[in-house]
């Protein structure tokens, strides 16, 4: 079997096709990714535009938006995830059959975006479910979503059937359910513990990508670690006063001379 990609594509041009099971299987999966019809906010409109005639997601085999999570491979989190919506999003994700993928579309789903500091807004969906591809933009253009899908397809291509959890004899068909947060008096709770206080920063860390085992990263974000932006005005002031002092110095010399 040719392992060399160049030889293989040469042969393919002649009409001879070789494949490994792995490659064949992944080719099948990547060519018909079925996304879930799951729009949350503004980004969903661009997601719809991507699916329709002008951008035509069907060229990539992903035009079949399914209304049920049981029939979907891909969840495109398109829009702002609010604290009130998180339990539903996680539950939907848990209901999707494996292998499953997540594209976090737009600034909101990735980090909270423009609404990051709102009391009801989640600062990134990766605090609750693992994400494969992030798309920046507010909203991302349809082309960006297409690129995200292509990125996902190349990730699928790279998956090795011997290593993935959900294939083969030792398959664990459904990995453990992701914990569904519940509503508490001061924010979202997991197992009775406050994880996402309203009006403050989350107390849990984000998930790593599925390629890296869907583990929580070990850092915990603490409210004390709020980033402090440079005080632009003060710097400007210092700069101006420095140049002012320089000018004054020249003045002094002039007078002295």
């Amino acid at each position: 079997m040719p392992s060399d990609d160049a030889v293989q594509s040469d042969l393919e041009q002649q009409g001879v096709f070789f494949s490994t099971l792995n490659r064949f299987y992944n080719w099948g999966r990547r060519s018909s990714v079925w996304p879930m019809a799951f729009g949350l906010a503004c980004c969903a409109i661009e997601m719809m535009a991507t699916g329709l005639s002008r951008y035509d997601l069907a060229r990539f085999g992903a035009e079949l938006f399914r209304a049920s999570p049981r029939q979907a491979d891909l969840m495109i989190v398109a829009g702002t995830v609010t604290k009130k919506m998180v339990p539903q999003v996680v539950r939907l994700y848990n209901q999707m059959p494996e292998p499953r993928y997540v594209i976090s579309m737009g600034a909101c789903a990735t980090s909270g975006g423009p609404f990051r500091d709102g009391y009801n807004v989640v600062r990134g969906i990766d605090l609750y479910i693992p994400v494969d591809v992030y798309v920046p933009g507010c909203p991302p253009r349809p082309e960006a979503l297409l690129h995200a899908l292509m990125t996902l397809q190349s990730q699928i291509d790279r998956q090795n059937l011997k290593q993935v959890r959900w294939y083969g004899k030792k398959a664990r068909p459904q990995s453990q359910d992701f914990p569904v947060p519940s509503y508490g008096p001061h924010g979202l709770e997991i197992d009775g513990k406050l994880v996402d206080p309203v009006g403050s920063l989350p107390l849990i860390s984000s998930y790593s990508s599925p390629m890296e085992g869907e583990q929580r990263r070990d850092q915990i974000e603490h409210p004390e670690l709020v980033r402090v932006f440079p005080d632009m005005e003060r710097e400007l002031r210092e700069e101006t006063s420095a140049s002012y002092a320089e000018a004054l110095e020249g003045e002094d010399q002039h007078v002295r001379r």
């Binding site: 990051r116 500091d117 009391y119 403050s200 920063l201 709020v226 980033r227 402090v228």
Partner: peptide
């Protein structure tokens, strides 16, 4: 009401 975040620094 308590708020926290970059916007409220």
């Amino acid at each position: 009401f308590v708020r926290q975040g970059d916007k409220y620094l």
